[in-house]
Design a protein around this nucleic acid. Sequence first.
DNA 1: GGAATAGTGTCTGTGAGACACTATTAG
DNA 2: CTAATAGTGTCTCACAGACACTATTCC
Lengths: 205, 205
Amino acid sequence: MSILDAHGKALTDYPRPSVAVDTAVLTVADEALCVALVERDGGRRLPGTFLHEEELLAEAVARSLRDRAGLRGVVPRQLHVFDAVDRDDRGRVLSVAHLIALPSSALHDVDLVPVVEAHGLDFDHDAIVERAVDALRESYAERPDPAGILGPEFTLLELHRLHSAIDPTTAQKDTFRRAMLPHLDGLDRLQEGVIGKPARLFRRR
Amino acid sequence: MSILDAHGKALTDYPRPSVAVDTAVLTVADEALCVALVERDGGRRLPGTFLHEEELLAEAVARSLRDRAGLRGVVPRQLHVFDAVDRDDRGRVLSVAHLIALPSSALHDVDLVPVVEAHGLDFDHDAIVERAVDALRESYAERPDPAGILGPEFTLLELHRLHSAIDPTTAQKDTFRRAMLPHLDGLDRLQEGVIGKPARLFRRR
DNA sequence: GGAATAGTGTCTGTGAGACACTATTAG
DNA sequence: CTAATAGTGTCTCACAGACACTATTCC
């Protein structure tokens, strides 16, 4: 830590910003795409924390979410650094925005708000939600449930419902089926205990 | 700066990482996609600097490039934060990677190296170049010269050559023309002083 | 059989890609 | 005229999207 630069100073002799992580935790509940919000100082915001020394950004994201919900191995995706000088009046704070997608069953003790109603958040968190939704839709447009919200096995109806909740412009079932089949392995097992013809189970390829 | 948190401490009482910006400056020279590199301590790396207080990331990028080349209004695009704990042995340094694309005529006093030969760079700069090239190709796939490398007016041959240098899988001239025309305004002026039929000039829509 | 859902045959339109032709200029 | 490059008519192929039909299960 005491390595000096060309001016005879260590890195820690220069002013440094604080670095935070803020995470848009997205999920689907009741057929609606929702984001997890926390209440703080009378406002609503995304869960976040400050980056610790010797900690990766992904670890800080995991730490910030571990308390609020029994979150297992989360795999945050980095979205963007928000760097407006006045975005936090406690000082210069950069926020590295992240995205996580999870089944709603994995979340506890958080407010789930449909993204269409999640406006007026603190800081620049509206913009983070917007980026997160765009990124999620893009990733779901090409591949079946890339975040693994459904677990390892699912029917095409379940998959179609999930994709339609995430993006209402998702194609209807027959087109959707043909687009997704190349990325799926069909199992030789069927759904059980349902009305109508039982559907085949699939795994992601 | 003296606002206290729930533990009675100000933000500056917590350890903070240093934040750097590193920029992949991409250009096309001699029909080849090139990246600008600087020599330092016997290694090659991307131009970069540390973020100053009260400075935006884009401003730090502009500052780091202003010295090395008479760079006008650059519009850096943010790519990714590299956060490995040991990526810089002077201490904990986050690097926010950026991309800029410019005409090679705007660059002076830098080494231009074809991206296919730009390996073995310092830190994690190989990965930054890879991300930058991917991002540039993606942006050029849909729109004509979105970075404005060619200036305001150009022929379709010039545009095609540029796109082909950036991405060798670019379609051939007729398909390329039809794909790009919806995003172009044809002028009523023609190229002058050339062999063969003079080409029409276009502007980005 | 009837209800319910799974899965598919097939038609249409669109558009990428390639080939080869025509058009326009200089000399 | 020839050389050289610009620009386009047109064919093929693939595929998204939609409709409607068939298939399979439980009751």
